[in-house]
Amino acid sequence: MSAPAVIVDRLNVSFGTSHVVRDVSFEVAEGESYGIVGESGSGKSTVLRVLAGLNRAWSGALTIFGKAQPKVRDKAFHRAVQMVFQDPYGSLHPKKTLDDALAEPLAIHSIGDAERRIARALSDVGLPSAFRYRYPHQLSGGQRQRVAIARALVLEPTLFLLDEPTSALDVSIQAEVLNLLQALRQERKLTYVLVSHDLAVVGHMCERLMVMQHGQCVEEMSAATLSARKPETAYAQALLVASEGFRRQA
C-alpha cells in the first residue's frame, strides 16, 4: 500500500469570530476519489481551498504526497494540484478569450507545446475548437464550467480538487465530464477530492465520502454504504431522503 496522497489532521479554519471548519480529519489514498457532501455553508469549499493553498488562515496538519504542507506552497505544488471552482463565472477573466485562459497556466509554468495541449483539453471537455476565441460572456453557464475544467486539465495535475464540477452542467455534459474524469483517473493515476451535493454523482465517482455539517465531519462512509442507503447519522439519512425529490404535503 502506498502512502496516502492527502492526510488532513485536525484542520481548523476561522474567519474573524466564525469558526467554519472544526477539527476535520481525513485521508485520501493515492488514486482514490474521495467525496465531500453536506450542508450548504458547512465548510466544504473552505476545506478544498486549504488543500489548494488558497487559504492561509488555518491550523492543523496537512500532508500532501508525503510532504507536510506549509501555508505558502511552491510553484511545483501549484502545477501538481489543480482546483476547479464552484463558481464558473468568477473563475474566468471576463476580458480573456478561452485561448488566453488556457494558454496562461501553460505560460506561467513554462510548458511548451501549448497549441496541441489546448486543442486536446478543449476536445476532452467537448467544446468545439471554434469556441477558442470566444469570451466568457459569450458562453452558457455549462460551457464556462467546461472551460474551467479544461484549464485545470492542461497542466496534467496529479491531485484534482473539484468543487461542484458538474452542478452547472446539464445531465448529458455531466455524464461526459464524469466519464472523462473517471477515464483520466484510471489512465493517469490521478487522485480526486470531489465536493458535490448530488449524492448520485458522489456515489458514482467516489470510493469513500465524508458528510459535513456545521463545519464538522459528521460521518465518513463507503460508497457502498451510501448506495445501500445505510448511513448511521440522522443528518446523512436526511440527505438521502431529500435527494429523492420534492414532496408536496397534501
Partner: peptide, 20 residues
C-alpha cells in the same frame, strides 16, 4: 429519453454513464 438515460443512479451503479 436520452437525457434521462445520462443520469447516475445511486441504486444502480454503472461503470460508465450513457451519453447522448
Amino acid at each position: 429519453l436520452g437525457l434521462l438515460g445520462c443520469l447516475p443512479e445511486l441504486s444502480n451503479p454503472k461503470a460508465k454513464l450513457s451519453t447522448l
